[in-house]
């Protein structure tokens, strides 16, 4: 099986890599780029723990081959904080106790970011839809939704 050369930009940094035909974007991020914030919970696109933003849209990094993502731009949870300044979503997640075990948190944050990048004033229902593919077994979702609502208000008042 021959390897494929790809160029992907992750959190603003361009990487040129030779990847195998079976390597998933999730593997590339975690194993090669050591960005272990993106988690694997199911491997079949059901839990959302591996959610990243690919060219502006929330996607499962477990269901994308890195070879498919050649030329793409990827944002992971590690790309949220800018120069030591937490993203308003991160601040809101802390403040609203939207985190318990934390394993779903990175994916949850990416789904939330993809939503508010497109739709700065989402309704509660739109927030629920944006995170419907991010399973959380600890929080019952309520404080996550509250955090996202509050982050949109914080962004608006900026």
């Amino acid at each position: 099986m021959s390897n494929i050369e790809v160029t992907i930009t992750v959190n603003g940094t361009k990487h040129r890599l030779m990847v195998g035909p079976k390597e998933r974007l999730l593997d590339t991020l975690r194993e090669r780029l050591h960005l272990t914030g993106t988690k694997e919970g199911c491997g079949v696109g059901e839990c959302g723990a591996c959610t990243v933003i690919l060219d502006g849209e929330a996607v499962h990094s477990c269901l994308i081959l890195t070879a498919q993502a050649d030329g793409s731009e990827v944002i992971t949870v590690e790309g949220l904080e800018k120069e030591g300044q937490l993203h308003p979503l991160q601040e809101a997640f802390i403040k609203h106790h939207a985190v318990q075990c934390g394993f779903c948190t990175p994916g949850m944050l990416m789904s939330a970011k993809a939503l508010i990048d497109k739709n700065p004033n989402p309704t509660r229902e739109e927030i629920k839809t944006a995170i419907e593919g991010n399973l959380c077994r600890c929080t019952g979702y309520e404080q996550i939704i509250e955090a996202i609502e509050s982050a949109t208000r914080a962004l608006e008042s900026r």
Binding site: G45, T51, V59, H60, L63, A114, E132, N134
Partner: peptide, 9 residues
């Protein structure tokens, strides 16, 4: 269909 992530892809 699926979730937001699935519908995006």
């Amino acid at each position: 269909i699926g979730s937001t992530q699935i519908r995006n892809r």
